[in-house]
Structures are given as C-alpha cells and as structure tokens.
Design a protein around this nucleic acid. Structure first.
Lengths: 98, 98
DNA sequence: TGAACATATGAACAGTTGAACATATGATGA
DNA sequence: TCATCATATGTTCAACTGTTCATATGTTCA
C-alpha cells in the first residue's frame, strides 16, 4: 500500500471525481478544452438555462477546476490547469475502447 | 471540437466518473490495485459490512471496472483492466499537487 | 443430505443533488 | 444616475444514491 495515509487522499479523490460525474459539468469542462468561454456562450452551446450553468460553474470554481475573469459585462471561464484536461482524456480513452 | 458526436461520449464519460465519485467505490478500487481480494477481505479492510461492499461490487462489475472469479466459497474481485489504474493515478496526481 | 459459511439481493430510509424559477447583485454606457 | 445587460444566488422540489437490515442463494465438506 502507499507510504502516506491513503484514507484522506481517497476521500479527496472521490470528491474530485464527483466534479466529473455530472454530465452538465463534464460538458462544460469539455467545452472549455477549446479555450475560455463566457456564461452565455456555455448556456447556448449546452442548450441549458443561464442559472443552471452558473450554478455548476460556481461548483467547479470552488473545486478549483476552472478560473474566471471578467471582461466588461461578461465572466469568462477557463480550465484551471492541465490536470483537468488529462483527467478527461484518460477517461475518454477508457470510454472509447472495446 | 472532436470529430465524432461528442454528446454521447460525454454522457458515458460522466457515467464512468460516477463510479469513482463515491469513497467506498474508490477505496475498493484502490485496495484492488494490490491484487485480487474477496468480499470478506474488502469488508474487513474498509471496515464496512459485507452487504454494502457487495452492493458496490455489483455496481462496479456492471460498469466493467472489476471482474470476479469464484474460488471455493469466496468470490475474488480484481480490476478489469489497466485503465482503472491510470484513471486513479491521474486523479491522485491532481489531488496531491499544490 | 444438511449445517455452516460466503456472497447476493430486495426493500426501506435518510441524505444528497441538480434543475427551475424568481430575484438580487454588479457592471456598462447613454 | 438609471436602464439594461450579464451573471450570481436563494429556494424549492423531485429524483437519485448509498447504507442498513433481513433474507435468499449458492457452495463446501462432514
């Protein structure tokens, strides 16, 4: 087994995967692979209302998976770091295989 | 964006991550990184009752993340393939970083 | 075969979660 | 400043999820 206390780690790990375990959040993160987008653009491209997207963005931000910046009236969100991309890609690999 | 219809993929992806989004299931999968274990051993090492473990194992098996074989009275479970390990490790990397 | 062991299954319950709606906050520019 | 646009937040509710308890199924070996 691992050298550190793995129990805490595994609870954190489950919490991390929870962020990817909802289709709305995954679709948001996937859309952001292209680059930053504002709330309205995300709502349009996912065909969901603004409130639902905003709620999920706040959850993702609290988990530090996305970052936000303001430009004029709009809030632009982007992926917080490269890990997000690699987690998605590792998952995609699994889903796409026989 | 991707060349295939990414919508179905992303729902499958969320379903995949759901399996890792519960601490009991993550702990089971993590324990199985060591090699196969039977239901009683898993229940002992996670300090949970047999029924809870069995329920989660059936979920994991339905998602093809674990495989089972019988030996005498016991059912031994192991990880279904290497992807499971790489998904966990990619997640661990993220959790362990500043 | 039948007792004992190991695991699976079913039902019920509490806790959690995501979406919708309504409304509030905040920024912009006339 | 005020109307408007863009986003955030609070609340409610239905749906989902994981655990527990009770019981069933299935296997082994005397």
């Amino acid at each position: 087994m691992a050298a550190f206390d793995s129990e805490d780690l595994l609870y954190d790990l489950a919490d991390l995967f929870k962020m990817f375990a909802d289709s709305t959040r995954v679709r948001i993160l996937y859309a952001l692979l292209d680059g930053e987008k504002n709330v309205g653009e995300l709502a349009d491209s996912l065909s969901m209302n603004q409130s639902a997207i905003s709620h999920q963005l706040s959850v993702l931000k609290a988990s530090k998976l996305v970052k936000a910046r303001r430009d004029k009236k709009s809030m632009y969100y982007c992926l917080a770091d490269d890990h997000v991309e690699s987690i998605i890609k590792t998952g995609v690999e699994h889903v796409l295989e026989p």
